[in-house]
């Protein structure tokens, strides 16, 4: 009874706390497993080996470029879905989430069907411009963007739909075109949603494996990102695979935590 802490509201309900704790454990225990099994003594050596550095650099660059692609295309798409007067919006909204439910390998094959050397579009890219996307770093960026974009679109659309459209009307009465109103009024007001979506999108792109290896293949320095390196290392040297995973984990957690502190300050 000497405790200085006093409860301002009743006890936390067990029906919420129990599943929450189980859920947290469910997410964290596999990570603990990874960390326990990691051969910490060889970690620094692996970390500074050129092939790991190369894969890590490629992963960060490709995930960031893919995120830029997603932002440039995804934010306007989210706006169209949330505010545009397009027929069949419900169907469009469902279609946008397709890459979420599609196994990524299938997504990669679908990209090959379209942008591959003999693909619907790719054959003309190749014939007219000499552009071939598979087996290139650009291909990695495309594959990652394809898989990651729904995360951004869904978050931004949610933020847009929660935003009060009357602010856009207020901007219109002040003489702002829809584009200016979007840029100067709507976008700043949904910034937290955009940042959250960007972070999710980047994280998804960073971990992308299936679509990348299927569409862009695997060649060191060109298309071998960390997840691909992890997968191949698992074939012969599981210890190395764990080290690679831990490196990817540390870097991504570091970046995400830094972003969070910078952009998503919780309600204080």
């Amino acid at each position: 009874m000497t405790s200085a802490r006093r409860r301002t509201r009743g006890r936390l309900p067990v029906v919420l706390v129990l599943p929450a704790v189980v859920g947290l454990a469910f997410l964290l225990v596999p990570l603990v497993g990874l960390l326990v099994r990691a051969p910490w003594d060889t970690l620094p050596e692996q970390l500074f080996s050129s092939s790991v550095g190369e894969a890590l650099r490629l992963s960060l660059v490709c995930a960031s470029l893919a995120t830029v692609v997603c932002l440039v295309l995804g934010v306007p798409l989210a706006w169209l879905l949330a505010r545009g007067d397009v027929p069949g919006r419900g169907v469009l909204r469902a279609l946008v989430t397709v890459p979420l439910v599609l196994p990524p390998v299938v997504g990669g094959v679908a990209l090959l069907f379209v942008l591959g050397r003999r693909g619907l579009v790719g054959q003309y890219l190749d014939a007219w411009f000499g552009i071939s996307l598979p087996f290139t770093t650009a291909g990695v960026v495309l594959a990652e963007a394809f898989v990651a974009m729904p995360f951004l679109v869904i978050s931004v659309e949610g933020a847009l739909r929660a935003a009060d459209p009357r602010y856009e009307e207020a901007a219109a009465t002040l003489g702002a075109s829809r584009w200016l109103a979007f840029r100067r009024v709507t976008l700043p007001s949904i910034l937290p949603g955009v940042v959250a979506g960007t972070v999710l999108c980047w994280a998804r792109a960073l971990g992308e494996f299936g679509a990348t290896i299927t569409f862009a293949g695997n060649f060191p320095g060109e298309t071998t990102t960390m997840p691909l390196a992890v997968y191949l290392a698992l074939e012969t040297d599981p210890d190395a695979a764990i080290v690679l995973s831990v490196v990817l984990l540390l870097v991504s957690v570091g970046v995400l935590a830094a972003l969070r502190d910078r952009w998503i300050s919780g309600p204080s």
Binding site: A170, T173, L174, S177
Partner: peptide, 10 residues
Amino acid sequence: AERRPIGVVF
């Protein structure tokens, strides 16, 4: 609206 010379107090 954006092409009308108006001011609105909401």
